[in-house]
Design a binder for these strands. Structure first.
Lengths: 198, 198
DNA sequence: GCACGCATGTAATTGGTTACATGATTGC
DNA sequence: GCAATCATGTAACCAATTACATGCGTGC
């Protein structure tokens, strides 16, 4: 149920409308907790009913500016300190790795090198953000910086792994070939026979 | 739509019943693509209707042993080579990091150290598996080993990051304190006045 | 006056979780 | 005979995605 907490968290920094929140989700949480517009508006209504946020002000075009309530802050703190995070599950890219055996080694290698590239691209995006952003401004930026560092380290590790893995599948190919050669040799010893490769 | 491909992938290794698949999901894919029993049985029926798997044999207790079809293999290969993986989204643990500013530095540090511990625990579980499993048996094990290496590297990086981050929040505290001291000093220079900390 | 951006909502569908329901077989 | 395990399925619910629908305000 963490969409709720993402919304509460953003509102804990400053009051905002659903529209504002959508911009924040897209700007800062796209890679952490993406949300769609209908989700955000729906959640805001649910949160209002639950008394965790309130409409603090109304503006033009039916704008409703939401602010977190005391109950909301309590709930947010409760979530942060008492509820243990459920491990991040479901990794499409990794799932594929398990089944790379059914495509050719070349295709497997291609897949892994693409993963490496994708990680490298993301890494440089994060580096860009790191250099562009003005840190040491607010208390929030400390944690924004920490989250960014997570991104930097994970993308770096991901790239390293993918490159290693790509290498591994080619080595596996080579190993397989040498094993084939060995077994062919053993075959020769028994049968003194010279069959060709398929 | 990757539950479908997880099922196809497992069936590409060997025919299995829904019950068998559940065991495989829990044994090998828990941390990659978890699935519930109702999901698996439902998906098997959908896959059968779609002609991607077939009931190859029936056993006692109404057991239906499913096997992947040619169409199923084609679909699996198509997914592996032509469809680009959608980035792994939604990370509950990381989401919390963004909002650690609303709890005390001590609570923030505690959270991060717990994350480090959790990563370390998982890492040692993976190391255990690495040492216990008998690799170099089948072609599949090459990719199983590669996926495991991913787990090993990511948990290691995660632990490092969490320890660094825990340090960072304490340093941030210290930095803040020294800034406070500095500004108090500047105040003194101007006002020659000795006020206390709140 | 018109286009763009602000602003909110609903409906339909899919994917995932939890709980319930049922029964056959095997090994002791 | 009884317990554990094998084995399949359904129903209700929640979360997320996509598409649709509507309208006001501001700046050019």
């Amino acid at each position: 149920m963490s969409l709720r907490h993402a919304v509460l968290g953003l509102l804990s920094e400053s009051p905002a409308s659903g529209y504002d929140l959508m911009k924040l989700f897209n700007a800062t949480l796209t890679n952490v907790w993406p949300a769609t517009q209908s989700q955000v508006y729906g959640e805001l209504n649910k949160l209002t009913t639950a008394g965790l946020v309130e409409v603090a002000a109304q503006g033009p075009r039916g704008r409703k500016e939401y602010a977190i309530t005391e109950d909301g802050l309590t709930e947010l703190r409760h979530w942060l300190t008492d509820i243990k995070p459920g491990g991040s599950t479901r990794d499409d890219s990794l799932l594929r790795v398990f089944f790379l055996g059914i495509v050719t080694p070349l295709e497997a290698q291609t897949y892994l090198l693409q993963q490496a590239q994708r990680a490298a691209r993301l890494h440089s995006v994060y580096e860009q953000i790191d250099q562009t952003a003005n840190w040491d401004e607010e208390m929030i930026s400390v944690h924004g910086r920490i989250a960014l560092e997570y991104g930097l380290r994970m993308t770096a590790a991901l790239e390293d792994w993918a490159l290693w893995a790509a290498d591994e599948v080619t080595h596996a190919k080579a190993r397989k070939a040498s094993e084939l050669a060995r077994s062919r040799h053993k075959g020769k010893l028994r049968e003194e026979d010279a069959d060709e490769e398929g």
